[in-house]
Design a protein around this nucleic acid. Structure first.
Lengths: 125, 125
DNA sequence: TTCATACTTGGCAATTTAGCCAAGTGACCA
DNA sequence: TGGTCACTTGGCTAAATTGCCAAGTATGAA
């Protein structure tokens, strides 16, 4: 038996509007995810969820060179996740997007499930 | 005026259990996000959300070398996002995590907001 | 105007990632 | 037993990412 080759000739159930548009949308999503896919940037987002922070505060949290911190923040900003505001000699960053909480809840679910599966795997040996 | 330096000496409002544990959790989350942070893998997840697929179906979707597709699937599997099952000579992959829908909703919000901001930026010139 | 603080930007080296090709494994057919 | 199909794995190169240092800009204080 062969797996049904109806991937094309579809009756418009599921994803894919036009190939090109779909590709563009996946690329756009990937850009956002890539911005989040780093421990330090994830930490920044987590802390910014509690309120705005200036760069030097985030530098203390990360324990990295200021230039490195600045570049991480630029990545998050370019992805549309945070915005900055200069007040005096300080630059404050804050989250743009209130929905990131759900986001992390979902990731935690995945991690939990992963842990459970790993345990099951060990038990069945 | 200086920004309040109470980042340490905190009264346990907000994130950070212990520095080491926090770092580990951010790293774990980043691993999951990194797995999702690629257009092709995102497309796979999107299609798998509609039901299981064998590798060659996904290969057709992506238009990439079979070995490349296989490696992308390995990345998703190692991140705990999908699981595989061999039936006959085919290997079928399916999603582990039903919550990925919310995930994408959130990303779409970010993208929309980004588009709006960009428009506003253009308008104010 | 001079100096210090708070960043940002450019440039570099080390590491990681993404793609392909080639070779290997396992299931099924003749 | 030999061949084909459906994958996976190893190895390679090109490109992207992450960190630091050094240099530049902007704000406020002396």
């Amino acid at each position: 038996m062969k797996p049904s080759p109806k991937t094309r000739g579809r009756t418009d159930a599921g994803p894919t509007p036009t190939p090109a548009a779909a590709r563009a949308r996946y690329a756009a999503r990937a850009t956002v995810l890539k911005a989040l896919a780093h421990p330090v940037r994830l930490m920044f987002v987590d802390h910014l969820a509690a309120g705005e922070r200036c760069v030097c505060e985030l530098r203390n949290l990360a324990g990295l060179d200021l230039s490195t911190v600045s570049k991480h923040l630029t990545v998050l900003k370019n992805a549309g996740l945070i915005q900055d505001e200069k007040r005096g000699q300080w630059v404050y960053y804050r989250l743009c997007c209130p929905c990131l909480g759900n986001f992390f809840t979902c990731i935690e679910n995945i991690l939990k499930r992963q842990a459970t599966t790993k345990l099951k795997g060990l038990a069945s040996k």
